[in-house]
Simulated assay, not measured.
Amino acid sequence: MNKSTFFIVGQHAVLEALKNPKRKVLKLFLTEESKKNIHRKSPRKNLLEDVKVYFKTKKELDKYSTKENIQHQGYVAEIEKLDQPILKDYIKNKQNITLACLDGVTDPRNIGSIIRSAAAFKIDGVIVKERHFPSESKLMFKAASGCIEYLKIFEVSNINSTLKNLKDKNFWIYGFDSEAKKNFSEIKWEGNNILVFGSEGEGMHKHTSKYADFHVKIEMNNQIESLNISNSAAIVFHHLSYLKKNLD
């Protein structure tokens, strides 16, 4: 059975897809300069082996990215979707797992940036609502800068039922809310944790918020109303990574 295919653009997104042994790259469209750059960046391994490569001018490649108003940098690839990890299988018999959960976050750039930060700071995975996840978005792949190849993304049909099931499996649910009284950095962050981030403007859905064991916030200048959701997530991920590093 053939999987659906789609196009991604951008140097990091394409290079990391080529490096991922689980990712099938069907076609590669490169400029002469980007081909040379691939060999410079990976001199010990031929990333173009077993891949159909087509050489194009920069202008010819523009048609793959002008609609989204992003830069292709001389790299375009047609790829297959990865096999989706199953959350209940992943968490089985694991301890000290930290997962991020995106409740109502739909902007591809924000999702891509969150994925990039989650991979950078060793968050174990990201839970997203299947219907709202832009799985074939060039914008998301570009913003993730190749990190989507290194992070488990769990697509679920219902966020609330997923959180309920995780609570029953001894996960602590932390909802990030600018109106919360407790600063997230005051938490010890032990055991299995879910970090729930709501959308910009709306925040967490009211019903979703009820599943949180704790509501926490990022302490900041009270003259500033809020941070971009991807910036907020990066701050939290870095803090947890720092704590884990110093506890190990």
Rank of each mutant, 00 (worst) to 15 (best):
Gly112Cys: 06
His39Ser: 15
Ser241Trp: 10
Thr57Asn: 10
Met204Glu: 01
Ser226Trp: 06
Val236Lys: 01
Ile70Gly: 10
Met140Cys: 06
Lys167Leu: 13
Val76His: 09
Ala144Gly: 12
Glu78Ala: 09
Asp213Val: 07
His215Val: 01
Gln223Gly: 13
Thr162Phe: 04
Pro134Gln: 06
Glu200Lys: 04
Met204Thr: 03
Phe133Gln: 05
Ser185Met: 15
Gly146Ser: 02
Pro134Ser: 08
Val105Trp: 07
Ile8Arg: 03
Thr57Pro: 07
Ser145Val: 04
Gly201Ile: 02
Leu247Ala: 14
Asn231Arg: 00
Cys147Phe: 03
Lys22Ala: 13
Ile153Ser: 06
Ile79Gln: 11
Lys188Phe: 12
Leu195Cys: 03
Ile86Val: 15
Phe184Pro: 12
Ala144Arg: 05
Glu225Phe: 10
Leu227Asp: 06
Lys206Tyr: 03
Val126Ala: 04
Lys58Val: 03
Asn246Tyr: 14
Glu200Trp: 01
Thr98Ser: 05
Ile235Asn: 00
Ala118Thr: 03
Ser241His: 14
Phe133Gly: 09
Ser185Tyr: 10
Glu200Cys: 04
Val126Glu: 10
Arg131Ser: 15
Ser178Arg: 14
Lys210Thr: 13
Gly201Pro: 06
Lys182Tyr: 11
Phe171Asp: 05
Ser34His: 10
Tyr174Glu: 04
Gly104Lys: 05
Arg40Thr: 11
Lys36Glu: 15
Lys164Val: 15
Phe197Thr: 02
Asn183Ser: 15
Thr98Lys: 11
Met1Tyr: 07
Ile111Gly: 07
Gly198His: 07
Leu26Gly: 10
His12Phe: 11
Glu149His: 01
Leu15Arg: 11
Arg116Ile: 03
Glu155Leu: 12
Glu136Asp: 15
Arg109Thr: 08
Lys35Ile: 14
Val14Tyr: 05
Leu243Gln: 12
Tyr90Glu: 08
Ile173Val: 15
Tyr75Met: 10
Pro134Gly: 13
Thr208Lys: 11
Ile114Gly: 05
Ser34Glu: 09
Glu202Ala: 14
Tyr54Gly: 01
Ala180Tyr: 02
Val105Asp: 01
Lys152Val: 00
Arg40Glu: 15
Ala212His: 00
Lys24Asn: 13
Thr98Arg: 10
Leu102Asp: 00
Val25Met: 02
His132Met: 11
